[in-house]
Nucleic acid binder design. Structure first.
Lengths: 174, 174
DNA sequence: TTGACATAGTTAGCCAGCTAACTATAATGG
DNA sequence: CCATTATAGTTAGCTGGCTAACTATGTCAA
């Protein structure tokens, strides 16, 4: 996944929001506040995740490829499938696989059935890398999220789904 | 703000999460689920916001600079302050200002008091650009967020604050 | 008062996304 | 059965972040 946004250090105060709402009467102050708050926390989470992964020589892109491969029973998938699941272009996936192959974490296996295609296979070194990264990641994430109990987590996901359902409104042609 | 993460198209099913939890007993399944869900929705929101802004010839970086300037009573600020509030480096801010100046949306004003410093001033054209963009943005955001009532928005922000408080756990030295 | 340090802005070069175009191979329909 | 279209992977070049290094200016303490 590739989320790019400006890191919002100074969320607007309600005073600023009201000032803007005067000039732009369509402004829905709590909508803006929640929206920016959500983007800000997610941005900081993403940066922190990269910091955590970089201690193991990974970033989100490559890390996610390894996870997608581990999910497969055969520890194998094509670049196209990986690109689609990771939400990046095939061109980007080529670069990610190049880096992982250079590090010996995956290997390209050429298939006979469809000669256009390549299978990407998680190597033992790749699995070992995951076995080093994932426990650290899971421990840290557990601590990070310990402020929310189970009920709150469910509520959060429900609200995220509601927002997600509204996203098309941001881009819809009028 | 610069949030970079892989766009997670395929969130793990609870089945997959349990499979991983077997190998990695530290995994806190609902923590992982909520975390990925949050990053995914925020990513999609960020992409949609860029799509919305790009119809007006802006992206998040430049758009945010214009907003920060409009917040100031004098419609003026230094690049350093803008960089700090936007959460980008001063180097990045130089590039953003270059682009905005080229489009006539801001101007560099050299000061006499501190000759190291420059003041960035929102031009009439810059204000006009905001007057074109912001109503569209606010209308769309209102629709996007209309699935959440006021109580839910408050709850959401509270939960985001709880997560935010846990972020240091992701990067803390052990 | 001057040497060391701090601050403001810029420049240069890196990186990981992206799109568009290309090659090779497969699938399909007239 | 062959021309067209679709698919898989790669390459080339763009973009907007980043860090590090640099210039110029200001500040402060010995």
């Amino acid at each position: 996944m590739v989320l790019i946004m400006l890191e919002l250090k100074d969320l607007p105060t309600t005073g600023v929001l009201h000032k803007f709402a005067e000039r732009y009467p369509d402004a829905d102050i709590t909508a803006v506040s929640s929206f920016l708050h959500l983007l800000r926390v997610a941005t900081d989470l993403s940066i922190a995740l990269d910091t955590c992964l970089s201690k193991h020589g990974l970033l989100q892109g490559r890390w996610w490829v390894l996870i997608l491969l581990m999910r497969e029973d055969t520890h194998t998938a094509t670049p196209s499938v990986l690109a689609s699941k990771a939400g990046v272009t095939r061109a980007t996936m080529t670069g990610l696989i190049d880096g992982l192959e250079q590090g010996g974490l995956v290997e390209r296996v050429f298939t006979k059935s469809d000669r256009r295609s390549v299978l990407i296979h998680l190597t033992d070194a790749g699995q070992a890398k995951l076995d080093a990264v994932m426990p650290d990641y899971y421990q840290r994430l557990r601590l990070c999220m310990k402020g929310l109990n189970e009920a709150q987590r469910i509520q959060l996901e429900q609200m995220l789904d509601l927002i997600n359902a509204g996203i098309p409104e941001l881009t819809k042609q009028k």
